[in-house]
């Protein structure tokens, strides 16, 4: 959503860790913590669903014991908190066992969300880069725009997403583009900020060298500033694509049950389908992680081709 990931996180602390033991294994640590989460999830499901079951039994004056409650809490049809296996079953059903064109298929909804995410991301990245180039080259543009670009992000702009959708919809302007506009608004900012930084990151010596060559502004931009800014660009893009996905999902909320992961969340909340909400949520999480990983791979590929191994980009 915003640039909240700091650059690097070192877990090493001085001289304390010398011997390599099972404690140093990252995969093991992650696996253990995930296992902990899953156990907590199951316990939570038993507790939350159990409470509901018990009050149900007591209303009906039925007998109940602990084992019965636990067994039923883990397999409720409309649970308060679905268990992980219920979510996996729902995901499997809606992803692999429905025709892709069907409205019950999660792939169908993911596709809708993905398309507006990508369109918004491309538009936002383009706008962000253009703004950054303008800001770097024009002092007036910088001093009049830059404060407002920063202020624009303290405004909870996501709140106006439904308004943009409804207003554009009343103009018969529906479908992909209005949602993408919201994604664009959310994703231009990280790109602009990191690109302004990146375009200015060119080495001073190199800038002066090009100056002695009497290079034009445009030549300086393409031959020096642009290549120097690429690591920063990708750092911004990673944040931007995650923000773009959020924008697309929130943009789908007011369109009712037409399609997309956001619509899936909304219809799930209308009809009390917790499992459906969780499945959509897991799908959104997977999609977000996948998109960020893809941008990261693009970054590696581009930087490798350019011959730079710099990790500067993380600094944005």
């Amino acid at each position: 959503m915003s640039v909240w990931l700091p650059t690097t996180i070192s877990t090493e602390r001085g001289s304390k860790m010398k011997t390599a033991s099972w404690r140093d294994n990252r995969v093991f640590a992650v696996a253990l913590v995930s296992l902990g989460f899953i156990v907590i999830w199951y316990l939570g499901a038993i507790f939350l669903n159990g409470q509901q079951l018990v009050s149900q039994y007591e209303r009906r004056h039925q007998d109940w014991d602990a084992s019965k409650v636990v067994a039923e809490a883990l397999s409720m049809r409309r649970p308060v908190l679905p268990t992980p296996d219920q979510v996996v079953v729902e995901l499997n059903q809606s992803v692999f066992h429905e025709a892709i064109t069907s409205k019950r298929s999660l792939v169908f909804h993911t596709g809708i969300t993905l398309s507006s995410t990508l369109l918004g991301f491309v538009l936002g990245a383009a706008l962000g880069i253009l703004l950054a180039i303008g800001i770097v080259h024009n002092r007036t543009l910088e001093s009049s725009l830059m404060p407002w670009i920063i202020t624009s992000q303290t405004i909870p702009i996501l709140a106006i997403a439904p308004m943009v959708i409804v207003v554009l919809g009343s103009l018969n302007f529906t479908g992909l583009v209005p949602k993408s506009l919201i994604s664009m608004y959310l994703s231009f900012f990280p790109v602009t900020i990191s690109m302004v930084k990146g375009l200015r990151s060119a080495d001073r010596l190199h800038m002066e060298l090009l100056h002695t060559y009497s290079a034009t502004t445009r030549q300086v931009l393409w031959k020096l500033r642009w290549p120097a800014s690429l690591p920063f660009l990708f750092a911004g893009l990673k944040v931007a694509i995650a923000a773009s996905l959020v924008g697309a999902i929130v943009g789908e909320l007011p369109t009712g049950a037409q399609g997309g992961l956001g619509a899936r969340l909304l219809s799930g909340s209308y009809y009390g389908q917790m499992v459906q909400i969780w499945a959509a949520l897991v799908m959104a999480a997977l999609l977000g992680a996948l998109l960020v990983v893809l941008v990261g791979m693009g970054e590696k590929w581009v930087l490798k081709r350019m011959g730079t191994r710099t990790e500067l980009g993380a600094a944005a």
Binding site: M1, L5, E12, R23, R26, V33, V246, L265, I277
Partner: peptide, 26 residues
């Protein structure tokens, strides 16, 4: 506890890329 950090931080990183607002209906 470096061990807990190693285990929890990847989750922190993943959480930055997923739309958390989605939990609102829940």
């Amino acid at each position: 506890s470096p061990f807990m950090q190693k285990g929890l931080l990847p989750f922190g990183n993943i959480m930055s890329s997923i739309p958390i607002v989605g939990i609102a209906p829940i």
